[in-house]
């Protein structure tokens, strides 16, 4: 009996290492609405176990082809995503859209080379400027999952407004705030709003390129969008899809608290190490990645709050 158990354990361990060795993200398309599917990433930071599968990606099966929104964090992710799409439809990919310039959303582009890849103009510039450095950093954080990954830049500039692709009508909305350019894709037929990283759900938001005031303004407009008649599903950039605006409110609550905490700390005369050491309020204590994102955000946002106080703009 005991020997069987041990053997079973050994087999399990073998199976585990075989999965890791194959670098299989285990991507399965989840249907979120008619003709719209999502790959939901782990609500974690990059590591060598998740291989960078920490963000959501989506695809829309249009009459004349497939529209892909975001391509994941590596060549392997892009390839496996393409295979998982092929398991749902044999239609060709007509367009890949990158919502913004963060590496967990565009480093799978390479698997779609030859297909038009579209992004906002500012996103294209930012990918050109920072893409290689992002990829280098992900090799450090996700290890061999990144093997073979090279920067594939978008090839087409998108702008806000209606866009008909492969016989499906999309509405593109151009915001900024999470980064310098954040694209939201509304699929008119299904009522799905693909929000990119303007919305986090069940995971603390990240702020390395954030302009929080602009981000909050974008959230207000997104929330208005969820009150439109055709609205069905909100797909955040990280976390579970939702049929309500709850993830928008969750993201807003975090950001409002965060900037207020930075302002208050600066007004109180705290040094950055003292700001880092502050406890999280109870309502965010159990939010995944809250402690680490708070610490990262102090580095991103506290210097400006501090400058305002020292230069007498915030008494």
């Amino acid at each position: 009996m005991k020997r069987h158990l041990l053997m079973g354990l050994a087999l399990l361990m073998l199976a585990g290492s075989a999965v890791a060795a194959a670098f299989d993200y285990g991507l399965k398309a989840r249907r979120v609405a008619d003709g719209v599917y999502a790959f939901i990433g782990h609500t974690e930071d990059f590591d060598t176990v998740n291989g960078g599968n920490i963000a959501n990606a989506a695809f829309i099966v249009a009459p004349g082809g497939v529209i892909v929104v975001d391509s994941g964090s590596s060549l392997r992710y892009g390839q496996q995503m393409r295979a998982a799409i092929a398991a749902v439809t044999d239609k060709p990919v007509a367009l890949v859209i990158n919502t913004h310039h963060h590496p967990d959303h565009f480093l799978g582009n390479q698997a779609f080379a030859g297909v038009p890849i579209g992004a906002l103009a500012e996103t294209r510039q930012a990918i050109a400027a920072e893409g290689d450095a992002f990829a280098e950093n992900l090799f450090r954080m996700s290890g061999d999952w990144m093997k073979g990954t090279e920067l594939q830049q978008p090839t087409r500039t998108l702008a806000a407004g209606p866009l008909e692709i492969a016989g499906r009508r999309l509405r593109l909305l151009a915001f900024d705030g999470h980064t310098g350019a954040d694209l939201v894709v509304v699929d008119e037929a299904s009522g799905v709003v693909i929000a990119g990283d303007l919305v986090f759900h069940g995971r603390a938001p990240t702020t390395p390129h954030a302009n929080v005031a602009h981000w909050l303004a974008a959230l207000d407009r997104l929330e208005a969008l969820t009150r439109e008649l055709g609205f069905k599903v909100l797909l955040p950039g990280h976390g579970e899809p939702s049929t309500s605006a709850a993830p928008i409110r969750e993201t807003r609550a975090w950001l409002v608290w965060l900037v207020d905490a930075m302002r208050q700390a600066a007004r109180d005369g705290l040094d950055m190490n003292e700001v880092l050491a502050r406890p999280l309020p109870p309502e965010f204590a159990s939010l995944p990645l809250a402690a680490s994102e708070y610490r990262r955000s102090v580095g991103h946002l506290f210097p400006a709050a501090e400058q305002d106080v020292l230069e007498g703009r915030a008494q």
Binding site: D271, M272, N273, E274, L276, R295, R296, G299, H300, P303
Partner: peptide, 9 residues
């Protein structure tokens, strides 16, 4: 987080 601005007290 940012090697350009590491707070030290």
């Amino acid at each position: 987080e940012n090697p350009m601005q590491v707070p030290v007290t």
